[in-house]
Computed example of a mutant assay.
Amino acid sequence: MKRNQIILGLIISLVIALLAMTPFVLGYGNLKWNNIVLRTVYSFLNSLILWFGCLKFIYNKKLNKNIHSEIAKGVIAIVVLALFTNIMCDYILPKLFEHLRLTDDFPRIKRPGFLFLKCISQGLMYYFIILTQKTSEEKKNNQIELQRLKQAGLEANIISLKEQLSPHFLFNTLNTLSTLTKEKEAQDLIQELSKVYRYVLQYKEKNEATLNEELLLVNSYWYILKARFEDSISLQINLPDELKQSLIPPLTLQLLIENAVKHNIASEEKPLSIKIYVDSEFIIVENLLQPKRNSLNNSGSGLNNISLRYKLLLNKSIEINQYERLFQVKLPIINKL
């Protein structure tokens, strides 16, 4: 709750209270000043409860998480606040202010209904004002965050280019080695490594690749890992064919597999299992959680890199879940436009 919203609520409530008292001052010449003051306080508190109640509802994190529709949340907020204000101002406050009595224009039997409708209309106005403020504030913050992400992405690309050994050099060297060796296993390994670097060359300047192309990279990368770890690691991929034309930032799956192998124990006694599958609107990459000792305090720079690319390039967020024996990353499915 920001200071400017508190000040605005106080000002609006004071104006509403003064306007509400004008008919009484004009219509009842013999009305005592103490009654005018009490009625002003009455209207001021009525307005204040509605204003700060709307603020509380709009900025309530639990409510925002459980109710995604602003219309549904607004209806609930206004009705609840109107009932609460009705009880406060028509039943509790009169007992606190003995001189606060009902007027002849609104007999007691009619006043609760009138006040409830008044609170509904007032609450609707306040809710709209605060929601407009919040939307404008979020839009401004999103623009600032987008600029920050763009700047961070640019800096990351510059650093990456500075530290990168030329893939062209490695790719050409691997092709040369493949022609020199006679052993088929060595040739196959070099060819798969060449495919990995071919992919890096092809997509290093691009922001998107199809899932099918990414899976071809994963197959080559996994061949190389299997040559090293043999039966200590296993990979299960269960993705429908119709999903393979969706988009993904290049090297995302490869990086997640690399992180899983790098930070977890993979041995014959404790094999490391990795799965890639689809669940609702996400591609799930999960692995058994059996961390190495030196990985307990890892900063997770690879995951931060993936998260940054999804936010910067696609305006989407990934989900990272860690359970007792599983580590899971949920990648939003990005369909072609």
Rank of each mutant, 00 (worst) to 15 (best):
A209E: 00
Q254R: 05
L247D: 01
V261L: 02
L331V: 12
G53C: 07
G29F: 08
I49A: 08
I190Q: 00
S295C: 06
E183I: 11
I11M: 03
L45F: 11
P112Q: 03
E185G: 09
E183K: 08
W33Y: 04
Y277R: 02
I306V: 08
S273G: 10
L253H: 03
K336T: 13
T85M: 05
A20L: 12
L102R: 15
F114N: 10
L115I: 15
V285M: 06
Q164E: 04
I120K: 05
F282Y: 02
L63E: 06
I11D: 00
N141C: 00
T135F: 15
G74L: 01
I306N: 04
L216C: 09
E183H: 09
V75L: 13
I190A: 03
V329H: 00
L308D: 01
E269L: 14
L93Q: 13
F114R: 12
Q133W: 03
E145R: 13
P332A: 14
H168E: 08
N212G: 10
Q147I: 06
A186R: 07
S280Q: 06
I257C: 07
A20I: 09
E319V: 14
Q143M: 05
V196A: 01
E155V: 05
M1D: 10
L93Y: 14
E163F: 02
L8G: 00
Y91L: 07
A20P: 01
E319A: 15
G29Y: 10
E163G: 07
G29P: 11
L216I: 15
E324I: 12
K62I: 07
E137R: 11
I130D: 02
F128C: 14
Y42P: 01
L313S: 09
S47D: 04
G300F: 05
L14W: 10
N304G: 12
Y28C: 11
L170C: 06
